[in-house]
């Protein structure tokens, strides 16, 4: 194990940070940056709770060395929407009841968002394939699929987003 310094852009912020050759990107995000919306469910790339977007691609941060993210542009769930204005995918998840225990939710939202970027009008099979790397154990898949459909509809219509704020 060696220590070294790496740099990347995470959620739009430039960061330089000391890490080690045995640190995973997931550990760096959680333990060093305390961006705890990225979760560890299995550590083996099976569950998708650790999903982030790196250099425009959906990836499992538990299967990436921190050093491999040197020079990368990374988005975690904390980089999606904000208190004032949630992302349409986040809003749709709330409205359709797609959130239960919530542990899969950040990864699921990132997978959905990435899929909709590449394919704005997915059919049900395409949605299933898009989130096939993310497990939900509360088995709320149907609601999650509904949420993604709702978000897709809103994103493709002009007045996207919720008209009434949830309070």
């Amino acid at each position: 194990m060696s220590k070294l310094t790496i740099g990347f852009i995470i959620n739009g912020q430039k960061k330089t940070i000391e890490t080690t050759t045995s640190t995973r990107l997931l550990d760096l995000i959680r333990d060093d940056l305390h961006l705890t919306g990225t979760k560890e469910g299995c550590g083996k790339g099976e569950c998708g709770a650790c999903t982030v977007i790196m250099n425009g691609e959906l990836v499992a941060s538990c299967l990436i060395l921190a050093t491999q993210s040197d020079g990368a542009v990374i988005t975690t769930i904390e980089g999606i929407g904000d208190n004032e204005c949630l992302d349409p995918v986040q809003e749709a998840f709330i409205e359709t009841g797609a959130v239960q225990c919530g542990f899969c939710t950040p990864g699921m939202i990132l997978a959905a968002k990435k899929m909709l970027e590449e394919n704005p009008h997915p059919d049900e099979e395409e949605i299933k394939r898009g989130i096939s790397g993310n497990l939900c154990r509360c088995t709320g898949y149907q609601k999650i699929i509904d949420a993604i459909k709702l978000a897709a509809n809103r994103l493709s219509s002009k007045n996207g987003g919720r008209s009434e704020k949830d309070d």
Binding site: F8, I9, I10, G12, K14, K15, D70, G79, D82
Partner: peptide, 11 residues
């Protein structure tokens, strides 16, 4: 570390 625009970062 939240929000903002992504710029290309090269090291």
């Amino acid at each position: 570390f939240s929000g903002g625009d992504s710029k290309k970062c090269q090291r």
